[in-house]
């Protein structure tokens, strides 16, 4: 059902990701301003950051510092590569699910580097805070992905979509879907999981970044959020399946819906403190996803 598209579509996937991330940023601007004029805010911010002077701090590790945001951006583009758009996929990898997981983990390294490089206490604390967050969100996330692969009996994203032709995974794997969305927010340090870039750390990871460097970090955040939202569609929401409209349009619409939900959530919830969330994640979310995986395994056996 999902087929390998020609090579050039890999670039198209990147362009679509960028476009969706821009939509997310514009949506966020409107949400903050609570009026349509807010849509211009991200454009104005990009203009401001492009023209702004870049800066460096005392005894900063510039190599590591500058490679962090770039790594996050590139990883988001690579993660989106395995997401099929309707009936076509830019890279039909036999281990697409694991690939997405691996690219998402690049954020760990990237954000820690951003924090470490600046030689600023805010950044260092923020980088470590993201690692604590990673330790908390990653296992439920992995089990959610495993559950999806288990339901499809394959690690190929195309097979995962095909396995949902009868019933979307979100219907019979709700716990995995929730765990996945939580992880999506956490890997993009977005919404209630924005502790590493929060006001209480003077902006945390971005406390010492200006100009293009700051722009890249923000872009990486939106790109990662978009990639995570996009992957939810083939994993849980039936990919391009839907009535009337063409499959690619359904894929896009579902992605925008998930993305809109994640962006909307930002203003609704206060930041989660990691020393609280870690315990919740290990003692509630982790067993819940394990039980979910067990139920799915039993269904797979009985099928």
């Amino acid at each position: 059902m999902v087929r390998q598209a020609p090579l050039w579509t890999a670039l198209l996937a990147g362009a679509v990701l960028l476009a969706l991330a821009t939509i997310a940023a514009v949506g966020r601007g409107v949400a903050v301003a609570r009026r349509a004029a807010g849509a211009g805010t991200p454009v104005a911010e990009v203009a401001r950051l492009l023209a702004q002077q870049r800066r460096s701090t005392l005894a900063a590790d510039r190599l590591l510092w500058r490679s962090g945001p770039a790594a996050v951006c590139v990883a988001a583009a690579l993660a989106a590569l395995v997401v099929p758009l309707g009936r076509w996929t830019a890279w039909d990898s036999p281990v697409g699910v694991v690939w997405f997981n691996a690219m998402e983990v690049v954020v760990w390294a990237g954000l820690w580097l951003v924090g470490w490089g600046a030689n600023s206490v805010w950044g260092v604390v923020a980088g470590y805070r993201f690692l604590a967050q990673g330790l908390a969100y990653e296992l439920p996330h992995m089990f959610a992905l495993t559950t999806v692969a288990l339901g499809a009996g394959s690690l190929r994203v195309g097979d995962v979509v095909a396995a949902q032709s009868g019933l979307w995974f979100v219907v019979w794997m709700p716990v995995a879907f929730v765990a996945y969305l939580v992880a999506a927010l956490a890997m993009a340090f977005w919404g209630p999981f924005d502790a590493p870039a929060q006001a209480d750390l003077a902006g945390g990871l971005g406390a010492e970044l200006s100009g293009v460097d700051a722009l890249l970090l923000r872009a990486g955040r939106y790109l990662m959020l978009t990639a995570a939202a996009a992957f939810a569609v083939p994993a849980f929401l039936g990919g391009g399946a839907g009535p009337l409209l063409p499959a690619w349009l359904w894929s896009l619409l579902k992605t925008v819906a998930v993305l809109g939900f994640l962006v909307w959530l930002r203003d609704r919830l206060p930041t989660v403190r990691m020393e609280r969330y870690t315990e919740l994640s290990w003692l509630v979310l982790l067993p819940a996803t394990l039980v979910q995986a067990l139920l799915v395994a039993i269904v797979v056996l009985l099928r």
Partner: peptide
């Protein structure tokens, strides 16, 4: 892919 996935987490 597993090497990439595991090594990033472990090196961090």
């Amino acid at each position: 892919v597993l090497v990439i996935l595991m090594m990033i987490m472990e090196m961090v």
